[in-house]
């Protein structure tokens, strides 16, 4: 299990290759990537605030739960904070399992929980100023299926 919370950009392709390369006996690797949307309203920046200490702890708990619930060989979460521009990569998750169903489901579980249980807050900064992104009811409801 590899959990990283960082301000610096990362190389998505390299991370995916390293993750897939270090697995033994795993037939399936699923990756998900979150990217800053280029909004029509003219998004200039996305500012991501987090709670140092609790962030790492919360993600570790979420990932450990995923490892227990599914038959996973490994999991990776990289989540950035600070100021990001349109089209920049915000975060990625990767899961490795012997079979694809475990890898897919665990990746979805990780994403659903990272959305509303990891202490990050996004602020969109446009020409009109800054606006905190509101949590969506659907994101909270998404947890019910697990």
């Amino acid at each position: 299990m590899d959990i990283r919370v960082q301000e610096a950009p990362f190389d998505l392709g390299a991370e995916a290759n390293i993750f897939a390369g270090r697995q033994a006996g795993m037939g399936a690797v699923v990756t998900f990537t979150g990217i800053v949307r280029d909004l029509e309203a003219g998004l200039n920046m996305m500012e991501i605030e987090h709670y140092p200490g609790m962030t790492e702890r919360a993600i570790t708990e979420i990932a450990s739960e995923a490892m227990t619930r599914w038959s996973l060989g490994d999991a990776l979460v990289i989540h950035r904070h600070g100021r990001l521009g349109p089209d920049e990569v915000i975060m990625m998750v990767a899961t490795a399992a012997r079979h694809r169903v475990d890898a897919f489901e665990a990746a979805q579980y990780l994403m659903d929980y990272l959305k509303s249980r990891a202490p990050f807050w996004k602020k969109e900064i446009t020409r009109e100023g800054g606006q905190w992104v509101a949590a969506r009811d659907e994101d909270e409801q998404a947890l019910d299926r697990w």
């Binding site: 979150g34 509303s116 990891a118 202490p119 990050f120 807050w121 996004k122 992104v133």
Partner: peptide
């Protein structure tokens, strides 16, 4: 103790 709005990660 920390206070904050609902989280918006991912």
């Amino acid at each position: 103790v920390a206070f904050f709005p609902p989280m918006t990660g991912g």
